[in-house]
Design a protein around this nucleic acid. Structure first.
Lengths: 228, 228
DNA sequence: GTCTATACTTAGATAGAC
DNA sequence: GTCTATCTAAGTATAGAC
């Protein structure tokens, strides 16, 4: 799975492999530790400021390391950014499991909403990173969007259409439906300051996410004519 | 209406006023022309890269002016950014005022969705600028979100609740409903590369927006139990 | 293998030329 | 009033020290 085309970059924090001695040595403890810190820090910084706006300096400070040290581990700002995007797309792909026409629409659609919401909830920074990348024109993710992800959406769309033909749901445009679900679920991570500002809270808790998920499931299923 | 608190900045391209001679002179033709170019260019650049990532250099190139010249007109990068945010928030406020407090839920809610969609459609760059600002933690817009916008949402929420009490719609959480509408409508501008990549088009036309708007109106109204 | 001093480029801003 | 040469800070990256 090579999500990003632009760069022939060997992933930074992949399962194994290092350029050190012969073949398959594990990364040293200190390296592993520093890389983890860097990845977390960088995800937050890039999520907040985008690729251009996120400085290695800011990442270094957030990771508690000298700037030059960060570059030693990750090679370049670009490679770091790509590694983060790949990590997030891997999470996304793990969520996109397959379904068949014979499954129950209500069950599947609800699982769809819930898993997307869980992904957003589990990785809000990754969600924002993705949002910033797309907002900036998706320079690194274009191929992924036009390829893998598109195929998945089209396949899913066909299933929805068949459900509609069988009268199991309204004949809504399946692609717009998928976008609606994605946008609604992403919103609580990506626009968190707006949500918090308007609701007057200082954080969204597990309960809030429960309520929101239930609300979305109910409204969307009903809106599609499932469980009418 | 002072949307942004941080800076005591006199707006750049306001209706009248200039620092020149005595009082109320009109901006010179050349100034007006250059400022317009700069505002448009800057909106695009900040929308793409955020505040930090958007360089004066990039804005200058997009506007067809030397970098130093841009700074002469706008004073500073910060002032320019604030002016753009204020312009966008003014549009937003104009939209919010537009929605009358009628008594027919279906009519109101549909008008709500349509006006928000029209705003996004009319100013996609402004929409992305706003998105980038909020994604970055809304450092400039916090007061607006916690103040004006919050009040508007709360007032509107109370109306929705009264409708639910009268049995005119399902008892959905009105604030989550508003967020759903905002996210769904914003999505087509903010995540345009994703939408285009997946649908395989190279632009969304007037027809697409019509279809999407109709789709959203139908699904959301039905989902709330209006026109059940 | 780990880290830092140094190089070079671009950033935002201004003082001064026209 | 309009515009540009110039300044200082911050940016990424690397060559070389430990």
């Amino acid at each position: 799975m090579t999500v990003i085309s632009e760069v022939g970059s060997s992933p930074i924090s992949s399962s194994a492999s290092s350029r050190s001695s012969a073949g398959e040595s594990e990364a040293s403890a200190i390296r592993q530790r520093n890389e983890e810190r860097i990845l977390e820090a960088a995800e937050a910084v890039f999520a907040q400021h985008g690729y251009r706006g996120g400085s290695v300096q800011a990442i270094a400070e957030a990771a508690g390391l000298p700037k030059s040290n960060v570059l030693y581990y990750v090679g370049s700002k670009r490679r770091l950014y790509v590694a983060l995007l790949e990590r997030m797309m891997a999470r996304w792909n793990a969520m996109l499991d397959d379904i068949s026409v014979d499954d129950d629409p209500a069950e599947i659609l609800e699982a769809f909403i819930r898993s997307k919401m869980a992904l957003t909830r589990a990785h809000p920074q990754g969600s924002r990173l993705f949002a910033a990348e797309v907002l900036g024109g998706a320079p690194f993710l274009q191929d992924y969007l036009r390829g893998e992800l598109r195929d998945w959406v089209q396949a899913r769309a066909r299933v929805f259409e068949q459900w509609a033909e069988r009268g199991l749901m309204d004949p809504v445009d399946p692609v717009w439906l998928i976008f609606l679900i994605w946008s609604a679920t992403q919103h609580y991570a990506d626009f968190e300051p707006q949500v918090l500002g308007i609701t007057g809270r200082d954080a969204l808790g597990e309960q809030d996410y429960q309520h929101i998920t239930d609300f979305l499931c109910r409204l969307i299923l009903k809106g599609c004519g499932i469980r009418g």
